[in-house]
C-alpha cells in the first residue's frame, strides 16, 4: 500500500539535509522556499531514505494573490508519495520558479504546459516554449483573470 508522507514528516526529512529550506507545512504537503528548491529536489531524489525517483505530477494553481506550484513525487523503492508546494508570483507579479528538469526529466513537458496555460516561468528550462497553444497567443488561459 502506497503511503502518503504527512507534511510534518516530510518537512522533518527535508530539514535534515537542507536546513531552512522549508517554509511550513500543511496536512500532507510541505512548503519549500523557491530559492532553495533545486537543492531540495536533488536531495529528495538522491537520498537513499527518500528516493523520490519520479515526478508524478507537476501542476500550478492560481490563488489570485499568488501562484502555487505543486509537485507530486513518488518513490518507487519505498512506495511512498510526497507533495511539495512552492509559492511564487506574490501579488500577481512575475511568477517564476527554478526548473527541475535537470533532476526529473519528466518535468519537461509538464513545465512547458504549466508555462503555457498558467504563465509560471520555469527558470533554467532549456526549451521554455508554449506547448498546447500556438506561438503568439496572448495570455495564459488557466489564470483566473483570463478573459475570453
Amino acid at each position: 500500500m502506497s503511503v502518503l508522507y504527512r507534511g510534518e514528516e516530510l518537512q522533518a526529512e527535508i530539514e535534515k539535509f537542507a536546513p531552512g529550506a522549508t517554509t511550513g507545512h500543511s496536512e500532507d504537503a510541505v512548503h519549500v522556499d523557491a530559492g532553495q528548491w533545486l537543492d531540495v529536489a536533488q536531495g529528495l531524489k538522491e537520498r537513499e531514505e527518500l528516493g523520490f525517483a519520479a515526478l508524478t505530477l507537476l501542476t500550478t494553481v492560481d490563488y489570485i494573490d499568488h501562484f502555487e506550484v505543486v509537485y507530486h513525487l513518488r518513490s518507487l523503492s519505498h512506495n511512498r508519495t510526497g507533495v511539495i508546494k512552492l509559492r511564487c508570483g506574490e501579488g500577481r507579479g512575475d511568477a517564476a520558479v527554478p526548473s527541475v528538469i535537470s533532476v526529473w526529466r519528466g518535468a519537461d513537458l509538464q513545465e512547458r504546459e504549466a508555462y503555457d496555460l498558467m504563465g509560471v516561468r520555469f527558470e533554467g528550462h532549456p526549451n521554455m516554449k508554449r506547448l498546447m497553444l500556438w506561438e503568439g497567443f496572448e495570455g495564459h488561459p488557466l489564470r483566473k483573470d483570463y478573459l475570453r
Partner: peptide, 10 residues
Amino acid sequence: PDVMVNASIT
C-alpha cells in the same frame, strides 16, 4: 528503465 522512471513514464 531508470531513465523511464525519471521521465515519469508509467
